Amino acid sequence: MSDFDHMGLVVDWVDACRKGDLATLLDLYADDGEVECSCNGTQRYRGRRELETYWGPKLNAFSSAGFGLEEIHPAPNGIDLEYSVAGALRVRASFRFSAEGKIYSTLCEPAQQGSHDCCAC
């Protein structure tokens, strides 16, 4: 899979977040895909059920507060993205992909933003 396809997959992820479309977001992940969130202590979610538990409330917050794409670029072995919630809270997410062209892992962490607490990723 080319870098262009990886970038397109992450753009689809951004679109699903903006729309609050949980089903589409989950379909972008591999069956054993995972999210590791380091925003409020490190927590890991793996598989569709756990990802649904993680992303469901987040998407509701994104749709009511606003979700913005700040930066997106290729990175070694994947794509790095920075997004904002409510125009202020910034989160960095790194995506890695399966051979089947699905998101295998997402690592999110607070981006540089001063003393704000990252609780929306």
Rank of each mutant, 00 (worst) to 15 (best):
E70Y: 02
V35I: 11
D31N: 08
F4I: 14
E34S: 05
W55Q: 04
V14P: 00
P57Y: 06
L9E: 02
N60A: 15
C119T: 10
C17N: 15
E52M: 10
A111Q: 06
Q112I: 09
D12S: 15
Q113P: 06
A30E: 08
D21R: 06
S94R: 08
E100G: 14
S105M: 07
D31E: 13
G47E: 09
T24N: 12
E71S: 09
C118K: 10
L59A: 05
N60L: 12
A61V: 14
V91N: 05
R46L: 08
H6E: 02
S63W: 02
G33S: 06
D3R: 09
R18Q: 15
H6I: 01
R46H: 08
E36G: 02
V85P: 04
L81D: 08
R92T: 10
E36A: 09
M1G: 14
A75Q: 11
T53I: 07
I72T: 09
F95S: 10
F62C: 06
F97T: 05
Y54A: 07
N40A: 13
L69W: 08
G8W: 08
E109R: 13
R92I: 07
Q112F: 09
R96K: 12
L25A: 07
G56D: 01
K19I: 01
A23D: 15
A88Y: 03
L51R: 01
L59G: 07
W13D: 11
C118S: 11
W55L: 05
G41P: 06
R18A: 15
Q113Y: 12
C37R: 11
R46P: 01
D32A: 03
L69P: 04
P74M: 14
G87M: 12
G68C: 07
D15V: 10
Y104P: 00
S38P: 01
T42S: 14
Y45D: 03
D5E: 12
R46V: 12
A75M: 11
T53Y: 09
L59T: 07
T42H: 13
I72G: 09
S63M: 09
E50H: 06
K58T: 11
H116N: 11
V85Y: 00
W55N: 05
W55E: 03
Y29T: 01
K58L: 14
R96D: 01
A120V: 15
A61K: 06
S98C: 06
G47K: 07
C118F: 04
L81W: 03
Q113R: 08
L107C: 08
G66Y: 15
C37G: 14
N40H: 08
G41S: 11
N77C: 03
A111Y: 05
G87K: 10
Y29G: 01
C39Y: 02
L51W: 03
G20Q: 11
L9R: 13
L81F: 08
